Amino acid sequence: MHTHILALDPDFGAQLGRGIGAIALYAIIGLVLILAGFYAIDWTTPGKLSDLVRTGKPNAVLVTSAGLVSMAFIIVVAITSSASDLTAGLITSLVYGLIGIIVQVAAVRILEWATRIDIGEMIQSEKYSPASAVVASAHVALGLVVAVAIS
């Protein structure tokens, strides 16, 4: 009968520690970028977005949710595209995330102009507006485009 002893690489503890540190750092950058994206949308949209979301305005909730998902796409791809180098991964996640925020805010303003959708009025409405699905889809689509451009 053979007995096998599980042996870990002598460097296993250090690797595990680096991995946990990387997760924490990426989580912090992700949170900062998602908050920055939220406040960029809030700053460029009439009305106080956080109040609109908190009070359950359906269009504000939908558009904000799509913007957050879009930022997550960008951050995830930035992380995976430079996963072998932690410092480069953190920097590219931050830079690409900031570019993604700028692109999203600009694109939503262009969409508003092109479609004549009054996004400020729409997100403040108590009633669901199908146009909010168009704005939300634009957020997700742009997030995917920026994410793919990163990879």
Results as ranks from 00 to 15, higher is better:
residue 8 L to I: 01
residue 23 I to E: 06
residue 14 A to W: 10
residue 10 P to T: 05
residue 22 A to H: 06
residue 51 D to K: 13
residue 26 Y to I: 02
residue 67 G to Q: 12
residue 102 I to T: 12
residue 10 P to L: 01
residue 6 L to F: 08
residue 48 K to D: 15
residue 13 G to Y: 03
residue 4 H to P: 00
residue 22 A to W: 03
residue 60 A to K: 04
residue 25 L to Q: 05
residue 61 V to W: 13
residue 23 I to F: 13
residue 29 I to S: 01
residue 65 S to G: 15
residue 88 A to F: 08
residue 40 A to W: 00
residue 94 L to V: 10
residue 40 A to S: 10
residue 37 G to F: 09
residue 93 S to W: 06
residue 37 G to A: 07
residue 47 G to Y: 11
residue 26 Y to D: 02
residue 85 D to Q: 13
residue 87 T to F: 13
residue 80 T to V: 09
residue 75 I to H: 11
residue 92 T to C: 01
residue 60 A to C: 01
residue 24 A to L: 06
residue 51 D to R: 12
residue 79 I to M: 05
residue 88 A to Y: 00
residue 96 Y to C: 09
residue 19 G to K: 09
residue 26 Y to A: 07
residue 54 R to P: 05
residue 53 V to F: 15
residue 8 L to W: 04
residue 64 T to F: 08
residue 17 G to F: 12
residue 96 Y to H: 04
residue 100 G to V: 03
residue 9 D to R: 06
residue 99 I to C: 01
residue 45 T to E: 05
residue 100 G to Y: 05
residue 68 L to G: 12
residue 57 K to C: 09
residue 80 T to I: 08
residue 91 I to M: 13
residue 61 V to Y: 11
residue 55 T to G: 06
residue 85 D to F: 11
residue 24 A to W: 04
residue 88 A to C: 03
residue 43 W to E: 07
residue 58 P to I: 11
residue 85 D to C: 07
residue 22 A to Q: 03
residue 14 A to T: 07
residue 80 T to H: 05
residue 21 G to W: 00
residue 35 L to C: 07
residue 99 I to Q: 02
residue 8 L to Q: 07
residue 13 G to A: 08
residue 42 D to S: 13
residue 42 D to F: 08
residue 96 Y to R: 06
residue 25 L to E: 09
residue 8 L to R: 01
residue 65 S to C: 10
residue 4 H to K: 09
residue 42 D to H: 15
residue 9 D to S: 02
residue 70 S to V: 02
residue 90 L to W: 07
residue 59 N to V: 04
residue 24 A to S: 03
residue 18 R to K: 12
residue 78 A to V: 00
residue 83 A to S: 01
residue 18 R to F: 08
residue 41 I to Q: 14
residue 41 I to D: 07
residue 62 L to F: 14
residue 44 T to A: 10
residue 14 A to R: 06
residue 97 G to K: 05
residue 27 A to Y: 08
residue 47 G to I: 05
residue 83 A to W: 12
residue 36 A to F: 04
residue 70 S to C: 05
residue 21 G to P: 05
residue 98 L to I: 11
residue 88 A to M: 15
residue 26 Y to R: 14
